[in-house]
């Protein structure tokens, strides 16, 4: 316990509570969601749920609908059918910024940091939904704005400490190496104090060492903050090692869901990944 780093914000995870105490059954329920763009069906009747503190993984070949699932959760896409329920109420038609405020944060497959801002500014921007100073308070600076900026800075520094990016603090992110940018993006999402973190391929394009670092950060976040996570990843070793449950998508359809070892043995999954002929033999 003693060697754990303390963050200045507490987790809001409800993992230990009963259904009555929480007031909802699952943290997130994704029910029979279908999403199509004109003729292309990106998602067909996809259902899953995520509980508090759970590490849920979504895998599948390219174009299976993993990122589309995230975009539905974030409110970037609005699916035509089905429902997305966050803590017992539907967020199907909410705007992205509203969903962020509710406690869903995200990192992106292709880094979506703000390239002209420094690491500090990027992570501080993540505090946007947890701060409330109005623009006129900001214009005056002295008083409320200054107090909030200082409090923000303390939280941001804790996150920088957790992710071990101290030496890059003041750099514009566009100048940083890829692996560090990925960490900054994770930091920006953490700054939102989320209850659910969507990680879109956090170790894509990373070498073994960087992958292990990132896995350590993901486990740290889970252990210290108890944040539920949905992980989209192609690195099967990582997924099978750290995920609690895994869902497999193929061509927008759910073909398997369950514990990593069950999913690995599923014939449908083997067919999707290795091809029909191999599975038949």
């Amino acid at each position: 316990m003693s060697d754990r780093r303390r963050l200045s914000f507490e987790t809001r995870s409800q993992a230990g509570l009963s259904v009555e105490e929480r007031g909802y059954e699952h943290l997130l329920e994704f029910t029979d969601v279908s999403l199509s763009f004109k003729g292309v069906k990106a998602l067909t009747d996809v259902s899953f749920h995520v509980d508090d503190g759970e590490l849920f993984a979504i895998i599948g070949p390219n174009g299976a609908g993993k990122t589309s699932t995230f975009n539905c959760l974030n409110g970037v896409y609005h699916p035509q059918e089905g429902d997305i329920v966050w803590k017992g109420s539907s967020i199907l038609r909410e705007r992205p910024d509203k969903i962020a405020e509710l406690g869903i944060a995200r990192t992106f497959q292709n880094i979506e940091l703000f390239p002209h801002m420094t690491v500090l500014e990027n992570i501080t921007l993540g505090r946007h939904v947890r701060t409330h100073v109005s623009w006129w308070d900001g214009a005056i600076w002295w008083g409320r704005a200054k107090r909030e900026e200082l409090a923000n800075r303390a939280v941001v520094e804790d996150i920088i400490d957790l992710l071990e990016i101290e030496q890059w603090r003041a750099y514009p992110v566009a100048l940083l190496p890829y692996g560090v940018q990925k960490r900054v993006e994770l930091g920006r999402a953490l700054a939102m104090e989320p209850e659910l973190l969507l990680l879109d391929e956090p170790v894509a394009g990373m070498n073994l060492e960087e992958t292990e670092d990132m896995a350590r950060f993901i486990l740290d976040i889970r252990e210290e903050l108890g944040i539920a996570m949905i992980l989209v990843e192609h690195d099967m070793g990582l997924v099978m090692d750290i995920a609690d449950r895994v869902m497999v998508l193929d061509f927008g359809k759910r073909i398997a869901i369950g514990k990593p070892e069950e999913v690995q043995r599923d014939p449908e999954v083997i067919r999707a990944y290795l091809g029909g002929d191999l599975a038949a033999t």
Binding site: R95, P96, A100, E112, F114, L125, H128, V129, M192
Partner: peptide
Amino acid sequence: IAAEIMGVN
């Protein structure tokens, strides 16, 4: 779009 997902209206 990233800004919106981070909660900026």
